[in-house]
Design a protein around this nucleic acid. Sequence first.
DNA 1: GCTAATCTGTACTTTATAGTCAAGATTGCC
DNA 2: GGCAATCTTGACTATAAAGTACAGATTAGC
Lengths: 158, 158
Amino acid sequence: MKLSANEEYGLRCLVRIGYAGEGGSLTIPEISQAEGVSPSYAAKILRVLRKGGFVKAARGKEGGYTLARPAEAIVIGNVIDALGGRLFESKFCDSHSGQAAICTRSVDCSVRSLWRAVQVAVDHVLSKATLRDLLQNEEDMNSWVRTIPGPAGLRLVQ
Amino acid sequence: MKLSANEEYGLRCLVRIGYAGEGGSLTIPEISQAEGVSPSYAAKILRVLRKGGFVKAARGKEGGYTLARPAEAIVIGNVIDALGGRLFESKFCDSHSGQAAICTRSVDCSVRSLWRAVQVAVDHVLSKATLRDLLQNEEDMNSWVRTIPGPAGLRLVQ
DNA sequence: GCTAATCTGTACTTTATAGTCAAGATTGCC
DNA sequence: GGCAATCTTGACTATAAAGTACAGATTAGC
Ligand code: FES
Ligand code: FES
């Protein structure tokens, strides 16, 4: 259960573009340098973000990437889904092997129920966060996190 | 953000051994067949579970694997940590690149705050689940999940 | 139209994960 | 002791993910 490189850098690139403000744009070399990844790799990641509909690209001189929508309309959960897929999806149980009593896939499996619960917990946080929320400093973000109803908010406070 | 093969099969193997009951034991060929993985691979996974202190192995004829502790004393969160590591740990931000305003690693990063919140949400589910909880059918497990305070429980009900 | 800056797409290389294999060590039983 | 069933270990191969390279297409400005 790790973040993939796509997820880690993809989200950071998106935040970086968001920092450029309404209509502001950044080029691949700029993003690349800011995030400390190679231009080639940045291009690869930005392609995913573009295909996901989160950024728009302008070619040619004076080109660059800009947000496809206002930051508050970009839900982080959707971004992560585009960059790295979900932890648990319905087809998950079609792909793994094992027949007997536990994982009869689609009949009766307590493990599946647990994964589903974890996915719900993750979604609960990521579906509430928008890019707008990430365009603030860590302290403000921590305050925001505490506003999430439920444990994620509560326990972060310690 | 995917489950690794270790996590997926490791947990299922552990549940399988749990099904053998108090003091009951299973051999690698048995586990392998039940879970539909090769004996070699089952052995590799069981080694991780053994080193994590979740199962004990007996060699020789009449050997096999058995739970190292009662099922209710095995917290699934710990099992997953042993099998696949955590989503977010403090050293996470030491390893990624990028210097400028967002990810100054350890100074001020809203993204980090979000990952931390996700980790907390995951822990909230996995730290409450024990192997005992998984030794029941899916319906009972769903009921159990609903007892988790907060969103994971609530939203699974739909 | 030319040039330089930019994105786009595909193919490639490198590295990490997944999965296999075989030789060795331990134990119970006869 | 000898045998067969079992776990243990490290090295090996295969596959997927991460990261790079490059040739092509688009655009602004002159
Ligand atoms: S059937 Fe998918 S985890 Fe058991
Ligand atoms: S410093 Fe680690 S995610 Fe930004």
